[in-house]
Amino acid sequence: MFEARLVQSSILKKVLEAIKDLLNEATFDCSDSGIQLQAMDNSHVSLVSMNLRSDGFDKYRCDRNISMGMNLGSMTKILKCAANEDVVTMKAQDNADTVTFVFESPNQEKVSDYEMKLMNLDQEHLGIPETEYACVVRLPAGEFARICRDLSQFGESVVISCTKEGVKFSSAGDIGSANIKLAQTSNVDKEELAVTVEMQEPVTLTFASRYLNSFTKATSLSNVVQLSMSPDVPLVVEYRIGEIGHIRYYLAPKIED
């Protein structure tokens, strides 16, 4: 029996919002440590890795490890039926072929349950090596989303170059070119407004704008986003999910042809 109860259904709604553009379906791997998801988009250029720890749930029971193949379009439709302040419970019998979502209104006057068929998805798991990144940038998530959106109007690629002074985002195309430079903030009163750069060595990498824009769908989950870069390895874009976990997006850099 698997059962996971979350008082804030908005977390699960935002997680679906953050992955449904990139992935049509994904396997939720549930164990007693929590729920993990790892899936590449159809082009195999980007990957989503999500982790929701069991201790972040209000109630969590997982008698035996269970992998639930979910159609994310269907799951999104079901989660749209939950109000933000509803309590959501996901539950499935062992080796079940369906999963049930129960939404309870705060005053318990309305209880809804939705049963969704599970899919048999072949699991192609990628080994992601632990990496000491040359540059780790933390900046306001809203700022990053704004930069990706503005620059994607200029070209299909964004060049991110990171030095100890700060980080520069550039794009060029038919209409012209654009550069956005963010300096490291010195002393900001609020942590979530800071721009910080931890640099071992300067890095300049080129990425496809459309994937960066898909990643920023996770902006509602966290005030801060973290970009980790090293020469010639995939970019990591990480959003924390409250105190319960994180979503990490990996994107292969473009290379000189």
């Binding site: 590449m40 082009s43 195999h44 250029v45 980007s46 990957l47 192609e124 798991h125 990628l126 080994g127 992601i128 090596p129 690629s157 080129t206 496809a208 390895v233 995939p234 990996y250 994107l251 292969a252 850099p253 473009k254 290379i255 000189e256 042809d257």
Partner: peptide, 14 residues
């Protein structure tokens, strides 16, 4: 022109 490699060029399966 920049080429777009796949993630499987960087991460191994399994």
């Amino acid at each position: 022109k920049k080429a777009q490699p796949k993630l499987t060029n960087f991460f191994c399966k399994g």
